[in-house]
Design a protein around this nucleic acid. Structure first.
Lengths: 114, 114
DNA sequence: TCCATATTTCAACGATTATCGAAATATTCG
DNA sequence: CGAATATTTCGATAATCGTTGAAATATGGA
């Protein structure tokens, strides 16, 4: 991930309403949510919402698809994970840094002992 | 973590020079770095840098301490980790989210928060 | 004390941002 | 077709942002 992509993604999340939208999408899961449903859930004007959707989409944090009259938005989880990795890159000069970092190489599920 | 704290932290990271500063601090580790050293490393005017440090500090992403004539800034890792947790809260409605490609069994990577 | 170093404060400026209202576009249904 | 629904586009506006230059503050050393 390029730095400018990271800045774009962070900027997309760094706004009250947009963060609400994104978190709602995250909770909605891969199936996403109709723009109208989001507008109602967050009490936002539809045109304002379009503006925010654009930002999220440009940042690679959301996708759209049309379904009848509705536009269905969904979170792009992969981008978010990449972003997190970018932030913690070379953390503490490469040495393991004390607190519970998500960049840690996560314990592998132990194989079934022979 | 409150939503407004998350927005503040994200906004603090959502700027080219500030993201550079933060990542430099992350890589510098808990001991931190002198303002002057950062200014030199990133080629930024000292007053501009002070402005950015303030943002990072207000967002809880950095700390300062004086050491002689220098101000030593260090990253606050805990805040960053909390922020990441906030973003992925209730991911996919609590069910394990299989990101992006449902076709492949997907390599194990980021852990799904409980 | 005086001087150099290191950093901060302040006022200004152009640029970007989020929101609004009104009008436009796309889709479905009768 | 024409009406209703769902969303987007456009133009305007106030607010916030990042940078600059000049001046101020704090520290350590001669």
């Amino acid at each position: 991930m390029e730095k400018t992509d990271a800045v774009t993604a962070l900027a997309a999340l760094a706004q009250d309403n947009r963060l609400d939208v994104f978190r709602l999408l995250v909770q909605a899961g891969p199936e996403g949510m109709a723009a109208g449903a989001i507008a109602e859930a967050l009490d936002l004007a539809p045109n304002t919402l379009t503006f925010h959707f654009d930002r999220l989409r440009m940042a690679g944090l959301a996708t759209v698809r049309r379904e009848g009259r509705s536009m269905i938005y969904a979170a792009r989880f992969e981008t978010m994970n990449t972003l997190v990795g970018f932030l913690t890159e070379n953390c503490c000069g490469g040495t393991s840094c004390a607190p519970a970092t998500p960049s840690k190489p996560a314990r592998k599920r132990s194989r079934v002992p022979a």
